[in-house]
Amino acid sequence: MKKYNSFLTILVLFIAMMQPHNLKAEENLDSANIYTETKLTLGYFCGPQDSVYLTATLLIKREENTLALEDAQVEFIVIGETSNKVIGTVNTNQEGIAKFTFSITGLPTNKDGMISYMAKFAETLKYPATEVSFSAKPASLKLFFSVEDSVKTLRVTATQKNAKREVIPISKETVMIYVPRLFSLLKIGEISLDETGTGTLEFPKEIVGDTLGNLIVMARIEEHDVYGFVEGKNTINWGVPKQYYKAEVPSRELWTPIAPMWMIITLIVMLLGVWAHYFYAVYELIMIKRLSKKNINLF
């Protein structure tokens, strides 16, 4: 039995040791001599008003184990024709992700108007350096709402900036239209852009908004070779007002913390009735005892 217990303890300790998968960047010196490979992946996302959001995920691979590296410094760099410019330095979180948002205004582009980004992890005592890069052309999506003959229409315009920083339309691309939800984006339609970079969609009915019917509508160009991910957002009260959940009727309400009134009343009445009789019986016993004392006093 004892043997089994100590084995269990060891097992538990072992499991506990295996648990933390997020290595702090400057710990575990003993593992320094084991060959370790690092790997970065870069996510790109272009939002409204020339803002760009980059996410770099840093993983390390050691002896078949892949682990996220926490608290490691990742540099975000824009690659220019002549020189590179460090635009930010961010530490990774417990999932190994470093997130960075910035404005692209004034950043160098190549002759096609593309901006090249790079995420870089510098060599440390234990981990080799690694880097990853990605190029995309700044673009922007705008959403407009209009009602004509009681038909609700969503219009989207897409623009890009060429090398001379001139705004020109993005034509013949597909734009996805979403409504953001708790866990994911609900797709409500697709728009094909014409030559002028414009497209329309008859807005679907029965989309639930917030309690006032307000909806955030999102237009996106996804996974594009030139533009990467581009997103535009706008708000409109075209949604069906959200109805909060109410228990369906008729509800027995037995599951609620407080019992139904009839049950409480019945219980109290019954208990009072029964215990009143008990007390009466006990009272009679007390009286019997009293009578005996009286008798003793008399004689």
């Binding site: 009679e284 016993l285 019997i288 005892k289 009578l291 005996s292 008798n295 003793i296």
Partner: peptide, 17 residues
Amino acid sequence: ALGYTGAPEQQQRLNRA
């Protein structure tokens, strides 16, 4: 026994209870 002696009143009370 509570001092029960079988006095009539005691009997009466006991029976009632």
